[in-house]
Amino acid sequence: MPRADFYLITTPRFREQPLRLVCELVRKAHAAGLPTLILARDDAQAEALDDLLWDMGEDAYIPHQIAGLDEDEDEADVLIAGPSADAPMRPLVINLRDAAVQGSFDRVLEVVPADESARGPLRERWKQYQARGLELKKYDM
Rank of each mutant, 00 (worst) to 15 (best):
M1T: 12
M1S: 12
P2S: 07
P2D: 02
P2F: 09
A4F: 05
A4L: 05
D5W: 01
F6C: 01
L8M: 05
I9K: 08
I9P: 01
T10H: 07
T11S: 15
P12F: 02
R13L: 07
R13G: 04
R13C: 00
R13M: 04
F14P: 05
E16P: 02
E16H: 10
V22L: 12
V22F: 10
V22Y: 12
C23W: 00
E24L: 14
E24I: 04
V26M: 08
R27P: 04
R27T: 13
K28L: 14
A29V: 06
H30G: 04
A32E: 14
G33S: 09
G33H: 11
L34Q: 15
P35S: 09
L37Q: 09
I38N: 08
R41F: 11
D42R: 03
D43H: 12
A44M: 02
A44K: 11
A44V: 12
Q45A: 11
A48G: 00
L49W: 03
D50L: 01
D50T: 08
D51V: 13
L52R: 14
L52V: 02
L52I: 04
L53S: 06
W54Q: 02
W54G: 06
W54P: 01
D55A: 11
D55E: 12
D55T: 09
M56R: 12
M56T: 11
M56Q: 15
G57C: 07
G57V: 10
G57P: 05
D59A: 14
A60M: 09
I62H: 02
I62D: 09
P63S: 06
H64T: 05
I66K: 13
G68R: 03
D70W: 13
D70A: 15
D70I: 03
E71V: 10
D72H: 15
E73F: 15
D74Y: 09
D74V: 06
E75L: 14
A76K: 08
D77N: 13
V78C: 08
L79T: 13
I80P: 05
A81V: 05
A81E: 09
G82F: 06
G82R: 05
P83I: 12
P83R: 11
P83S: 09
P83K: 07
S84P: 01
S84G: 11
A85N: 11
A85V: 08
A87N: 09
P88S: 10
P88A: 12
M89Q: 15
R90F: 12
R90S: 07
P91A: 12
P91Q: 13
V93H: 06
L96N: 04
R97I: 00
D98K: 10
D98G: 15
A100T: 07
A100P: 10
A100E: 07
A100F: 01
V101L: 01
V101A: 15
Q102T: 14
G103C: 07
G103S: 06
S104I: 05
D106E: 15
R107L: 11
R107I: 03
V108A: 11
L109I: 04
L109V: 10
L109A: 13
V111H: 02
V112A: 03
V112Q: 02
P113V: 03
A114T: 00
A114F: 10
D115E: 15
D115T: 01
E116V: 05
E116Y: 00
E116D: 11
E116A: 14
